[in-house]
Design a protein around this nucleic acid. Structure first.
Lengths: 344, 344
DNA sequence: CCTGCCTAAGAAAGCGTTTTCTCAGGTCGC
DNA sequence: GCGACCTGAGAAAACGCTTTCTTAGGCAGG
């Protein structure tokens, strides 16, 4: 006959009664404390096994002041980039016995702040991907979220490592690649206006323009998903550009699909590049030229940084900067003779 | 001067001292209990605001016996299907103030059991996607995991709703579609051998074969990712089939990519269909014919079912069955004159 | 043989809340 | 004007665990 505590689940008290010892002793046994007589210990273990006792993590968390859980705030769980970060993070954390709590802010920057705070309180640390949050707000809340690791953002707050991808360099590499292929009219299909990583790309393009005054680089408004690319076909054609730098692989895929529907050939008529090198990029037709970001590894690194913070280790590498690697595939090719713009 | 409790964070006791009341009163105010004098209440609120007090969720969870968190166990976070379920679940749960804890079993079925138990203990309920777990094991652990919602599995345990997609019907619809296009030699590029959803597809194909004795349906070994499809090109060509039913969209994309590399035309030479209708399916070249599963909605429904269980509502709809919808796009077309097999 | 130390296990405090219990003070009715 | 009822707030218990504190008992040394 199994006794059940108030909550209906088996608790440490039940095991204590069954083994004829105090619940303190049960706790000691369960935690591998060796100051317990071996006979009693095995009696306790037998009782625990028979009752299928498993310590309540909430009670444990309260007593120990830790939850063995970390949180991650992402702006959009539908975005493969954040999925990959989540995967890398989850996997690395799991290896150290930590679980991951997710908070999806659905691109609403005001939510990011609240969610981050809530998630942090439930966890031992936080990974924050908040591309829309203002610098001022980030500065303000960062200290209260520690242990904290930032992705693609930086802060002046101490002990807050940042993992940032050098999108500026990556987009320059892509642009160089297109120029090497003979393209002189490029267009950048931008990301969400207030996105931090979009800002980095724009900076990179400014540097590129300064270094290549003879290359025409148009800026086109955009977004971060398929539809953005798909709907941008007209704007792209109007621009007269022969080399298109899409904000990311998703946008590039949407664009290629749209161009295909118009009967245009990639890369015959227009070269298209993406960014991120998501797994799908290899399998588009034509396969997508892009800048590869070791994004899963980034999630993994985020955990290592966070772990160091949680363990209060001296973190010799407070954050790092990732260089995208140019990944040339079939979607980019030699420029054909300059086309005239479709309109005018 | 801000007092700090033992853990270094501001607690209810600090607010109580600052407002000159007992911590019980602070708790009452924070929880909107109206049996508190308005003057005192506002004094408490002022103190809480000034100290930026936020209740500790762990303490709260222990007292209330609930965590406002649900868990989800998935076999592979890299799989778009589970990403979509996660997204739908997370979003729906968030609207009711619940967070989601993820547990990735990395396709290891023995992990599924342990992870499920651990996750469940930290949460108020669990959504379980465990395609590899044996029926016996599922039967055994299901009761202890309640409140529990199963995805693509069923159990005899009471009060355990199942959300299952009718993969059998879906694959039949796809096969019918190919036959309608004139294909008489089909091949099924199977999924992971022990996967439950693969089993459902196989059953569906048996039914199809019984109904269409004149159609040749080959079974090819496979898996669930890009590489599976990509590496299956040889086997597909050897089969002599002109209509290929890929296990899912990923496999189909890998296959199309491989066929493209061999200079074969889809659907001119071979028609290819996927399954799931992941967002990418619209944007492949050619766009992928597939069976659309409202997978995000499934995640959402999982939450609604789980919520009913958590609230102990009478659940009038204990689980449901989803019918995939045939989504015809450009990757399937009329069969050309029967080819001879490449070898022999 | 008694004192002092050490070991091992129980008692109790603490983690941060919520909630029941208790009680002081006020109000109403008779 | 006094007892019964009600209101509102503090005291304390409870949630389930870990860990410190305490103490009983065994053993060795003087």
């Amino acid at each position: 006959m199994v006794r059940r505590s108030a909550t209906g689940r088996i608790g440490i008290a039940d095991v204590a009664v069954k083994a004829g010892v105090s619940h303190a002793t049960v706790s000691r046994v369960m935690n591998g404390n060796f100051t317990v007589d071996p006979d009693i210990a095995s009696r306790v273990r037998a009782a625990a096994a028979e009752l299928k006792y498993q310590p309540n993590p909430v009670g444990r968390s309260l007593a120990l002041g830790k939850t063995d859980t970390i949180g991650i705030v992402v702006p959009d769980l539908a975005n493969p980039t954040f999925q990959a970060i989540l995967r890398g993070l989850s996997r690395a954390a799991a290896q150290d016995g930590y679980r991951v709590l997710i908070a999806d802010s659905f691109e609403v920057s005001s939510e990011e702040t609240i969610l981050a705070g809530e998630a942090r309180r439930r966890c031992d640390g936080l990974v924050l991907c908040a591309p829309r949050m203002s610098d001022a707000e980030l500065e303000e809340i960062a200290p209260s979220l520690r242990p904290l690791v930032l992705i693609n953002r930086t802060t002046a707050a101490a002990d807050v490592p940042s993992l940032v991808v050098d999108y500026g360099q990556g987009v320059q590499d892509l642009a160089e690649h297109l120029v090497d292929l003979g393209h002189t009219r490029l267009a950048f299909l931008a990301g969400p206006p207030r996105s931090a990583s979009n800002g980095m790309r724009l900076q990179g393009l400014e540097a590129f323009k300064a270094a290549h005054p003879h290359v025409d680089v148009r800026m086109l408004e955009g977004g971060s998903d398929f539809d953005t690319g798909h709907e941008a076909v007209d704007a792209v054609l109007e621009s007269g550009a022969t080399g298109i730098l899409a904000f990311n692989d998703l946008v590039a895929m949407g664009l290629m699909s749209g161009l295909h529907e118009r009967g245009l050939d990639v890369p015959g008529d227009i070269s298209v590049t993406g960014f991120d090198d998501i797994p799908f990029a290899r399998y588009t037709t034509p396969a997508l030229t892009t800048a590869a970001v070791p994004i899963t590894e980034l999630g993994e690194q985020a955990w290592h940084q966070l772990r160091a913070l949680i363990r209060k280790e001296d973190n010799d590498a407070p954050g790092s900067r990732y260089q995208p690697r140019l990944q040339v595939r079939a979607s980019s090719g030699p420029a054909k003779a300059p086309r005239s713009t479709v309109h005018g």
